[in-house]
Amino acid sequence: MDSITKEKHIPKYINPYFGGVLLGILILFTFYITGRGLGASGAIKSAVVTTVDKVAPTHTESHTFYSKFISRDNSPMSSWLVFESIGVLLGGLLSGALFGRIKKLRVEHSPKITKKTRLIAAAIGGILFGFGSQFGRGCTSGAALSGTASSSFGGLIVMLFLFGTGYAVAYFFRKLWI
């Protein structure tokens, strides 16, 4: 791109436009083959339902939310999105290995905050994201990305409000990142 980005420490990521085209083609073929888009948070939902079902089966049966996802024939873990998410993990592993980014466990954070702050922030962010994804009927990949690509109105709404909120509150959390 331009000369400023050619920093010494920048790892060899592929060009974002090129990555975007690849992802666009992948979404297209996912729709062509399966008739639906990509997703990610659905796998966690399956994991939650499975865990709660194992710990307290009577609770899940009477519960209006869990009972939607439980059938006695199939474990909720044998769902499309669970396999897809395992694939995402493997794909990340593959790319990380190829570009030499797999290292020991580490925490990436802004020099202005401590490791602990970053981990607490990550946990809070995760809780909020998980909670919100249920109301949003999907996360960035399921609702915003695949939803908008299939021209679902809800997908567009999620995309606009997700990134819009990000910009609106970014200032208050700038210490976490820059």
């Binding site: 008739g35 639906r36 888009g37 990509l38 997703g39 990610a40 948070s41 659905g42 996802f69 769902s79 999105l81 994804s133 009927r137 999907g138 996360c139 990949s141 399921g142 609702a143 695949s146 939803g147």
Partner: peptide, 9 residues
């Protein structure tokens, strides 16, 4: 429309 069992994501 074809309905798929669960939400997208």
């Amino acid at each position: 429309k074809e309905t798929v069992a669960e939400g997208g994501c």
